[in-house]
């Protein structure tokens, strides 16, 4: 846009239209955290290894630390802030709490986003498919078991609630 590398970020974030002029050339992660103050998306490694920064870009799971912010222009971004709220948890979130799949919580937002992506593509996953679905998300606390069972429980609840087998992301 000019020599200071200002760009116009026009996109939809968690269902709301966003239009901002900000410094370009950064990562989608920086735009979300530093410009929009949506700090639920975490940075654990900055090199695409830990999955803590997983968000959805036009319904696809992406790592915000490897995604240039410009790529999100004109797109719809879903972050953890757009998935359920403390008083209205998404079934995946509720099931993670119920199973005890949250300890330090640093991996949790990324796990939730990966789980939503998995269930969108595969509403009735096997345990092996759940493991594969979250194998890009590192957790150092739980040993993964309670997260895996939490996702399985959520899948069953979502299946029961939506017999057609379609899972819709709840966007606030």
């Amino acid at each position: 846009m000019d020599e200071n590398n200002l760009i116009k970020m026009e996109l939809t974030v968690n269902g709301e239209a966003v239009s901002m002029i900000v410094k370009g050339g950064r990562r989608l992660l920086d735009f979300l955290r530093d410009d929009l103050h949506l700090t639920g998306t975490k940075e654990g490694c900055g090199e695409g290894e830990c999955g803590s920064c997983t968000v959805h870009l036009d319904g696809q799971s992406v790592l915000a630390c490897l995604t240039p912010m410009e790529r999100a222009i004109g797109c719809s971004v879903l972050t953890i802030e757009g998935v359920g709220s403390p008083t209205n948890l998404h079934p995946v979130q509720a099931a993670l709490l119920d199973e005890g799949g949250v300890q330090c919580g640093m991996c949790t937002p990324g796990m939730v986003m990966s789980a939503l992506d998995l269930l969108e593509r595969n509403p009735d996953p096997t345990i092996e498919e759940i493991i594969e679905g979250i194998s890009g998300n590192l957790c150092r606390c739980t040993g993964y078991k309670k997260i895996i069972y939490g996702i399985q429980q959520a899948a069953q609840e979502l299946q029961a609630a939506s017999p057609a087998g379609t899972v819709k992301e709840s966007v606030e």
Partner: peptide, 14 residues
């Protein structure tokens, strides 16, 4: 000293 080269267990490893 990077998580791409220092590997900790993923869900698929345990």
């Amino acid at each position: 000293a990077k998580l791409s080269t220092y590997l900790i267990p993923t869900a698929a490893d345990v």
